[in-house]
């Protein structure tokens, strides 16, 4: 179980990195934390001819809230989120979510943006970014920048809207005010494993009623999805156990989970119901 041969570059700045990616096109891959990429290379399921190691580039590890957006740089590691990176519901949600991502040694190297770029169907960050309506910022050679909304980013298992030569340099999440409440729940069979199902929700309350709602589901195969029908059931509702149950039922009814060695689809559907209910309970809908 040894990776196939590749050329290795460790550029010192972003321009160099995107120039290398431009030059190598489909053959080039960004190496950030490597915690997902390297195992797939060990099995030779991924065999990039060129690795562009971005770990030596200054200024990519930023994590800052500006103009209502949390900007997460390409080298912001999972572990950075373990204590709230921003006050309010967003920082608290991210701190809750990150404890479910693998294990501490993985979290110290793995990056938030790397998870979005890898797009594992069971990635916590992917579902979270989708639920929060995040934006992905891509750079390519010639200082061109492109932004992609999270809902347009995920295209399938390990497949995203990235184009050859592009590098994901930042993810932006909306900073949530105190009128927002969030929840996250997932189910995995063993500590730190990929979840069989997960739910993330973000709700805005105004005078006791739910005015905005977003629920994302992950771990179902394919890509993370928005549970639109479930979110719709919540609008205008007073937070209650009945509202949570109705939303959870809708999430379960409208999702399309897959079967694998860990669980049949029908079981994942049951988990969606349970996880949606738990996530909503955390957000105060119970």
């Amino acid at each position: 179980m040894k990776p196939a041969a590749f050329d290795y570059f460790a550029p010192r700045n972003l321009d160099e990195a995107v120039a290398l990616l431009a030059k190598h096109g489909e053959d080039g891959r960004v190496l950030a934390g490597g915690q997902s990429l390297v195992p797939t290379m060990a099995f030779r399921m991924a065999r990039p001819a060129v690795l562009v190691d971005i770990n030596r580039i200054e200024g990519l590890g930023h994590l800052s809230a500006q103009e209502g957006q949390l900007r997460i740089g390409a080298l912001a590691r999972h572990a950075h989120f373990e204590s709230a990176v921003t006050p309010g519901p967003l920082g608290a949600l991210l701190a809750r979510v990150v404890r479910h991502i693998a294990h501490p040694p993985i979290r110290m190297r793995g990056t938030f943006c790397g998870s979005l770029a890898h797009a594992d169907p069971a990635s916590e960050w992917c579902a979270t970014t989708l639920a929060l309506g995040g934006t992905l910022v891509l750079r390519s050679a010639g200082a061109d920048t492109r932004e992609v909304a999270a809902r347009d980013w995920f295209q399938g298992v390990f497949t995203t809207a990235i184009r050859p030569g592009e590098m994901l340099v930042e993810v932006r999440l909306p900073v949530l005010g105190p009128e927002w409440s969030c929840g996250f729940a997932e189910f995995s069979r063993r500590a730190g494993d990929f979840a069989l199902a997960m739910a993330v929700c973000a709700l805005r309350l105004d005078r006791g009623l739910i005015r905005e709602a977003s629920i994302a589901l992950g771990g179902l195969g394919g890509r993370p999805v928005l549970a639109l029908e479930a979110a719709a059931t919540l609008l205008g509702q007073v937070p209650s156990a009945e509202a949570a149950s109705a939303a959870a039922e809708a999430a379960a009814a409208h999702c399309d989970p897959h079967s694998d060695v860990h669980a049949p689809a029908e079981y994942r559907r049951d988990l969606v119901r349970a996880m949606a209910r738990r996530a909503l309970a955390q957000a105060g809908v119970a």
Binding site: R189, R190, A191, G192, D193, F194, V261, H262
Partner: peptide, 11 residues
Amino acid sequence: LADYIPPTCAE
């Protein structure tokens, strides 16, 4: 070992 899952100390 993600598909065949020996327990950790958490289990």
